[in-house]
Nucleic acid binder design. Structure first.
Lengths: 102, 102
DNA sequence: ACGAACGGTAAGCTATGACTTACCGACGAC
DNA sequence: GTCGTCGGTAAGTCATAGCTTACCGTTCGT
């Protein structure tokens, strides 16, 4: 249930592609496999990781299994990001302003 | 440049620990290495990834090099997350309707 | 009942990436 | 100048994660 699993899950580009795909609309496993450049078992494995991370939920309809994004998982991630962001600003303004680039 | 590098960067637990550490206050490389259970060169390598992802910035003071969080990088990440989240909600309520074919 | 479609799991291969030690340059103190 | 500190880079090792094919259970159609 740790939300840190969500970061690990989204660390993979293929899983981010799946998330983007599911952001459009819920899809079955086979539909995702058609779009993505990987096999269907690979999609299943990614979906398992995403599900354990709380980022997606699934619902069986007949022999198909439709996956969709879990808004709660995404909002939990955003809350964490907000915490980092606000704390970063605190440490930022307390430091001397000297900027540089690559 | 690509904000997707930020997701890859935060996919590693050690780099997330570095980000959390820098969220408290800016630190030099050696300071981070003291706290973390890895060697100093490993910290340098992680910082390089975080820097290329736009999540941290560095500033040389004498022989020390102080790293801090880059709020712009974090906010860019949050914007992406918001996009996912809102689109997930759209697909969520429209999921009641029929699905469409490929 | 049989067969096909859908999808999860197992086993195995391979590549990537996270770590190490060793080395080197840059800067400050003296 | 020399020496010590700080930190980035190189080279090499090793584990893990992502992919594949093969297999199996489940469900629907006929």
């Amino acid at each position: 249930m740790g939300t840190y699993q969500a970061w690990d899950a989204l660390g993979d580009p293929t899983r981010r592609a799946i998330v983007e795909c599911l952001a459009e609309r819920p899809r079955a496993v086979g539909e995702l496999a058609e779009v993505l450049p990987i096999s269907r078992p690979a999609v299943s494995q990614h979906l398992k990781v995403l599900k354990e991370a709380g980022l997606v939920s699934d619902q069986a309809t007949g022999t198909r299994r439709v996956y969709r994004l879990n808004p709660a998982g995404l909002s939990a991630l955003r809350d964490q990001l907000d915490t980092f962001w606000s704390r970063a600003l605190e440490g930022y303004q307390s430091a001397v302003e000297n900027e540089e680039k690559t």
